[in-house]
Design a protein around this nucleic acid. Structure first.
Lengths: 352, 352
DNA sequence: CTGTTAGCGCGTTCAT
DNA sequence: ATGAACGCGCTAACAG
């Protein structure tokens, strides 16, 4: 056990230098492992002395001081509005996995108030998951002042920063149209909006697809729930115990779809045979469960997002050069994943 | 709309000073609103000029540079191991609410690897929600080097930092004993541990309370679920549809208890009359629902935690003075909250 | 009473 | 391998 200092004060590079009997420059070179441009310029014995001194003092370089000089913080900030949403957790997980090997620390900003924070705190790159209209100016200004941004938004213009788009509407229609191949009695399981109605792109896609196919929408086939997965389970149970129950359920999130599958199985229905269920979002859980969940969603979304963010973070710190790298719009097209919970239906197997 | 600079470089205090035709010191005084010890020492006209220049350039002081000089970052770090746990979200929410008015930004560290990060990144205070045994040395060393820590742990010694304890065992026994006043057929609804068994303090309290009361534990009255709230709903449904169903359910988390209430109501059982349900954790949701949830838990936990953390963050930056403030152990005793879902039972109303 | 000068505190990096 | 300058904002001490 190396006895470490207990002065109550954090060791600085100067203390290390003094203890090792060298200059601060040497300590810096040794600990950062780099020397000018060329080969190694520090002799092994000195390097050992320095490392021993640093160890003994428990020295850790001060990131803030380093950042002031290098302009790099080895930090990315994730500004996430809805931390309770599993989507946010997926973002965090993907970024953490990719950042670790690079020595970059992801810091999460749970507050929606990224405008204030990003103006004063530096990071090598920042991910922002929601932009309110009145924040757009601030966004542009941040980018102009050299903040490296990756923004998730369906509308905002890419002006000096990256924008990730992932437009749900067409994909959701694909999901409902897939069900329409084999069904006419199709229910929709969707969280209620605060005002009690079921707004939102994902619900509208359902209504439009039905209308386009000439299928009348039934009000009692819309299963609203409170956003929790237990609520989805209860709503699905209600739908599936109706006298003329739906033969298919379109759930506007994968989590609701999983609950619906559980509810159906509890009721003794064979999912993928007696009843088809499709989700939205293409989350990993759906692929792994049994029966596997049919769904629509972007491909490889979180990993690609993480990769882009970290590429931007490690890219040239010089903002002038960064613009040459063409930050722009990255579009994630949605795909249909036909799996067990809602298989292909031919004329022979359709349920109407 | 103030036209702002677009040089692609972040404005510094020097640029503001130059544009305003004053010195950097003046800018600093104006923008930080303080001057030496005494009253205001900047004339109104100059202050206006400076503010205008700062506005025009979109100047925001660089926190990293400020921190190097002042030792204050106006930041607290929350190291949270299980971001998916609603408990973590409650911590975040409480801290954010308390930090906002103080101009302090909470940053969340989702990684469990706080040892590496806290060594290099500074914050005015740090909350750590879990300490593995091999991390205890690092904890002590961080505290010695001046990091202000608040640690949530049931075992670790308070050596130069605050420790928050909230011991579940006795409280959980109170919950089961409350049910024992009116019941004999008491089920336990608890998430399964990875190895399939139901370990954990909260389950053991159930087993011990039953044994102590001379009630035999029935294996089919232990409802294990996968940790999701839909899983809890399904497990509760199974318990309540048994031929000789339990008359009371002890759920080891409030979220499971809420699911159990939903399941009971769906089955047409009157909660608080036909069946009693009690939770663990004393979350706010339980108090607000109908029927209100009986539960056990600490009182005012998150708010007090937030208050302590921010008091430490804003306290004297001088670490020597900080020790005089007696950081120590803060114990949160658990209470029993008897509400509608499991009311008091007398000899007249008991269900056995 | 108002504003400036000079230097601090970090780790990094260029000449020497 | 080193001395000294550097980048940033803050602030004690000073000049008008």
């Amino acid at each position: 056990m190396a006895k470490t200092s207990n002065t109550g004060v954090r060791p600085t590079i100067r203390m290390v230098a003094e203890l090792a009997g060298v200059s601060t420059a040497t300590v810096s070179y040794v600990l950062s492992g780099r020397r000018g441009d060329g080969g190694p310029g520090v002799s092994d014995p000195t390097a050992e002395k320095v490392k021993a001194a640093a160890e003994r003092l428990g020295y850790r370089p001060n990131q803030a001081a380093r950042a002031i000089r290098t302009g790099r913080t080895n930090t990315v900030i994730l500004s996430l509005t809805m931390l309770s949403d599993p989507w946010s957790l997926s973002v965090i997980e993907a970024v953490q996995k990719a950042a670790g090997p690079l020595g970059i620390t992801p810091m999460i900003l749970g507050d929606a108030d990224w405008v204030k924070v990003l103006g004063t705190h530096n990071a090598d790159a920042v991910f922002v998951d929601a932009v309110r209209p009145e924040q757009r100016d601030a966004l542009r200004q941040l980018a102009q002042h050299g903040t490296t941004l990756v923004v998730f938004d369906e509308e905002v213009q890419a002006e000096g920063f990256d924008v990730i788009r992932s437009i749900a509407g067409p994909g959701c229609r694909m999901a409902v149209e897939h069900l329409l191949h084999g069904h006419r009695r199709i229910a929709c399981l969707t969280p209620a909006t605060p005002d009690g109605t079921s707004g939102g792109t994902r619900y509208r896609a359902y209504a439009q697809a039905l209308e386009h196919a000439g299928v009348e929408e039934r009000e009692d086939f819309v299963g609203l729930f409170d956003g929790t997965s237990a609520g989805a389970y209860a709503a699905a149970t209600r739908l599936l115990t109706m006298p003329d129950r739906p033969t298919a359920i379109y759930a506007t999130t994968d989590y609701a779809a999983v609950s619906a599958i559980n509810a159906a199985q509890r009721l003794g229905l064979a999912v993928g045979a007696d009843v088809d269920i499709i989700g939205v979002g293409n989350t990993v859980e759906g692929e792994r469960m049994s029966p596997s969940l049919s769904t629509v969603g972007p491909v490889d979304f979180f990993d690609k997002l993480a990769r882009l963010l970290l590429q931007r973070a490690t890219g040239p710190a010089d903002p002038a050069a960064a613009t040459a790298e063409t930050p722009g719009v990255l579009d994630f097209p949605w795909h249909l994943f036909v799996r067990e919970s809602a298989p292909h239906r031919s004329a022979a197997t359709r349920l109407y």
